[in-house]
Nucleic acid binder design. Structure first.
Lengths: 137, 137
DNA sequence: GTGTTTGCAAAGTGTTTGCAATTTA
DNA sequence: TAAATTGCAAACACTTTGCAAACAC
């Protein structure tokens, strides 16, 4: 707790991930990580940034989301062919998907479990198991 | 087993689904259903049709896949943001997804089970549970 | 004949890319 | 100032749509 500490949590995250803490990355990191768990698309994050008066291009939002994902700060979720979701909760969990409006929601921790995992076909390994519970009205 | 029966299985399927058995629908139904379980995208089916000398437009392939899905002859699978897969196996089962080449494969019947289904949020019902086991090399 | 289906080409959506200008360290 | 990052606009991949011509019954 030194008095010369100027670095925010967001800045630390970026530094630790080896990403230069540029104005755009810092602002996006704050939007993403300072509001609890989020599931967001590139276009949603972009318009949120613009509303918050953060000038950033959509291309940079895409770049940033992918860089954060590679750095392990985000997880990409496939729930809808047509767009990608990014989840700020990178721990092992699954999702509800509301078909009505395209929203995602975490399924409360370990409430649901996958049993009897199959052996992966020869020459492959399981990279991830993704469970999406699709909800209709 | 009357001797005046001219209708193929594919034609029966279409009639039962209330779809006119047009040349295009019949040909696509044969490609889809006469070769065991398949996981196919619209573009794959289109190029397969062209190779088999079936003249059909990509738009018609899309229309047909959606009509077959609505009629319950196919199931749409979300495994990759960017394209839709259609599965000729409409029974309850899950999939391996090969990240390497974008292919899907059924997970052998009931080898894997989801336990502890969560209650759906108020005002919703579970429309489907989709499990995708993503495979890397 | 009448309503359905098809094919084309255009438009739409979400995403990626090339590259010059800007920013960071 | 050297390397990384950004923004723009164009390109992309996949999908949907509007409408006139062709087809099924």
């Amino acid at each position: 707790m030194t008095s010369t500490r100027h670095f925010s949590l967001a800045m630390d995250r970026l530094r630790n991930a080896g990403l230069r803490p540029t104005r755009q990355r810092l602002a996006l990191a704050k939007l993403l990580f300072e509001a609890g768990d989020r599931h967001i698309t590139a276009e949603q994050l972009h318009s949120e940034a613009l509303q918050a008066n953060i000038r950033v291009s959509l291309a940079t939002v895409y770049n940033t989301l992918h860089q954060f994902t590679e750095a392990g700060l985000l997880r990409e979720i496939v729930a809808d062919s047509g767009r990608s979701y990014f989840d700020t909760n990178t721990s092992d969990h699954h999702h509800f998907y509301f078909e009505k409006n395209g929203m995602l929601m975490d399924i409360p921790n370990h409430e649901m479990v996958v049993n009897g995992l199959p052996n992966p076909p020869a020459g492959t390994r399981i990279a991830r198991i993704e469970v999406v519970v699709r909800l209709a009205e």
